[in-house]
Computed example of a mutant assay.
Amino acid sequence: MNIGIVGLGLIGGSLGLDLRSRGYQVLGVSRQEHTCQRAIARGAVDDASVNLTLLAAADVVFICTPLSAIEATVIQLIPHLAATTILTDVGSVKTSVVDSITPRWSNFVGGHPMAGTAENGIEAAQSDLFAGKPYVLTPTASTPPVAIETLELLVRSLGAHLYHCRPEDHDRAVAWISHLPVMVSSSLIAACMSETDPTTLELAEALASSGFKDTSRVGGGNPELGLMMARYNRSALLRSLAAYRDQLDQIVAAVEQENWDGLVDQLKQTQQGRSRFVK
């Protein structure tokens, strides 16, 4: 099976490393010739080009571009594909992608690997990035079974945990556990930076350790990715932000009113609740 990858960054490059190691022929496309050459040198692809015509021989194509470029990429790609070619994407929002691509290409399966790092680009690509991580597929009632089965085979070969759900269910779920944390983490960093006393700020910077590192990591990631989460999952993100703001207001009220019993009850609930999300 020939695998095509459009976008040779962290996710695309990591997919290439893993799929090549499983014996697949991998063809990559990037906007920059330098990236193509680095992807070849790193062993992420067998061949790479800035021209989408390279993917005419692909049986499956992963679109690993930013969310804002997926639809335009597919439109440019379609003239070069065989009718049987299966398309999938790796975007963190699914409803808008599935709604825009499915009418253009029936062999499309929305996808989202729940894996990544704070780094980006082909140099950040790594083997086994997806092993043990969730990988969501969002087929619709009209998705051809062979397309679903082929993607399931590839996802399982990565060692990922496969999940199926509706695009809209995916978007509401990731708003809670992926998109909201980015905004919360970003706000935490911004709040710390708003300290006006230089001595306090300098001391805070010096004392920041594992707790701050853990809670600020996703807020210090790729700004473009955070923007795409907000732009393409706007309603679900606003819903989760409103709920989070309500929880913060409850904490503020408890501290202002010195309601220590109420505060400890809330902290006990979150202590117990965390295990539901972090296995």
Rank of each mutant, 00 (worst) to 15 (best):
L27K: 09
A115S: 14
A147E: 04
I177R: 10
G43S: 03
N222L: 08
K279I: 10
V45M: 09
G220K: 11
T215M: 15
A190Y: 02
Q32E: 12
G116R: 12
H161N: 14
L201S: 10
E205M: 13
D89I: 04
A236I: 02
L19F: 14
L180F: 08
A175N: 11
P113S: 10
N107Y: 13
Q126D: 01
L8E: 07
V255C: 12
D128N: 12
V26A: 07
H170Q: 09
G7F: 04
L201H: 11
N120C: 11
H164R: 15
V218F: 00
P167D: 11
H161M: 13
L19S: 03
T200D: 07
D214N: 10
K94N: 02
S275H: 13
A57M: 07
P103A: 01
L180T: 06
D246W: 03
Q269A: 14
A124I: 03
S178P: 06
L227N: 05
F130I: 01
E149F: 01
L77T: 04
L10F: 07
G28R: 02
V109Y: 13
A173L: 13
G262D: 01
L151S: 07
S21W: 01
G91D: 03
Q32H: 14
A190G: 05
S275M: 02
I63M: 03
L81D: 10
T270W: 08
L227Q: 13
I75R: 14
V6E: 04
P223G: 01
Q25I: 12
Q247R: 13
E168A: 13
L87S: 03
I101W: 05
S49L: 08
T88A: 05
Q32N: 12
R20L: 09
D99Y: 00
S178H: 09
S178K: 06
L180E: 12
I122S: 04
R156M: 07
